[in-house]
């Protein structure tokens, strides 16, 4: 990892005794899907942040960002969950999530949830301003230009909608991937088109979701890349699930796993047994 620049703002000097003076205290927002489905992504994120000189804290009082309730029109429960997140993270310098969708929820939508409650709105704004998607945080805030990782092969990249359109995450993962030795990127046609996940959409309208993810899977296979990467586990589970159902060989991973050099685990949807002969 190249030398990161100091963060743009570091209001209070970090209090963690083991951390160097200039090390920002970063709260890792694990996300509910990473917590339950693929902790590897959480540990990859942890490694990337620590390698970049951050002191990472994982607040225990986190569950989910509240999107399932928010997108179902249930603002009351969303506020309860958002309050929990704000309380857990507001003392930290930054909040970082390996997901554009969850980071976008906190950054773009938390403040508007408390439009009728100025005190909470201010706290929400405070947390929102400090919240970043992982690759955007590494590149835009810490100024990381190169990661210490290697992966032989060709990858293609899907731009998850929330990260792309709410947080302008587009060049950051590509810039970092360019520094992974042995890796080459083949761009995916329609990389900016939704994969059909959409949170509860994919189970409320499975047929439409199927059409969208089938298109996506066909385009992925057509690139000839051996691995598909993206920055959001929801989309990855959807695309991996479809690729598997179609019998495609394409491996699927979160971009953090590759950037952290942690690709010794089975890819998403792959059995552990296939590891020795296929992955190495």
């Amino acid at each position: 990892m190249a030398h990161p620049q100091p963060p743009e703002s570091d209001p209070q000097s970090p209090s963690a005794p083991t951390a160097p003076a200039k090390s920002p205290r970063v709260g890792l927002f694990v996300t509910c899907l990473v917590d339950m489905f693929r902790p590897s992504i959480g540990f990859a994120t942890l490694k990337l942040l620590e390698d970049a000189g951050c002191t990472v804290v994982v607040p225990a009082a986190q569950t989910c960002c509240g999107q399932p309730a928010f997108n179902s029109g249930d603002n009351k429960d969303t506020r309860a969950i958002a309050t929990q997140v704000i309380e857990a993270f507001e003392g930290l310098d930054y909040v970082v999530a390996p997901s554009g969708s969850c980071a976008g929820m906190i950054r773009e939508h938390y403040p508007e949830l408390f439009a009728d409650d100025p005190a909470m709105a201010q706290r929400a704004q405070h947390v929102a301003k400090r919240t970043y998607e992982l690759t955007s945080f590494l590149v835009d805030v810490l100024g990381v230009t190169k990661v210490d990782a290697a992966m032989a092969g060709t990858v293609t990249y899907h731009d998850s909608c929330s990260g792309l359109r709410e947080l302008e995450v587009k060049v950051q993962p590509r810039r970092l991937l360019a520094g992974v030795s042995g890796l080459s990127l083949t761009e995916l046609p329609g990389a900016e088109v939704c994969c059909g996940f959409g949170g509860t959409f994919c189970v409320k309208y499975p047929e439409i979701s199927d059409k969208m993810v089938t298109n996506k899977a066909e385009e992925i296979v057509a690139t000839g890349a051996d691995t598909l990467l993206a920055g959001d586990l929801g989309c990855l589970l959807n695309m991996a699930g479809k690729l598997k159902r179609l019998g495609a060989e394409t491996k699927v991973r979160h971009v953090a796993e590759v950037l952290a050099g942690m690709t010794d685990t089975p890819a998403i949807g792959d059995p552990a047994a296939s590891l020795p002969n296929k992955e190495r």
């Binding site: 994919c202 189970v203 499975p206 979701s209 792959d270 059995p271």
Partner: peptide, 29 residues
């Protein structure tokens, strides 16, 4: 064994059209 689930009770909306990649088995926390 397979690394994925092809049917799952209460999740038919998901598994009717795609597999469900299996969780790694333990939570991050």
């Amino acid at each position: 064994v397979k690394g994925r689930l092809t049917t799952l009770p209460l999740a038919g909306g998901w598994t009717s059209v795609r597999d469900m990649p299996a969780p790694e088995g333990k939570t991050f926390h």
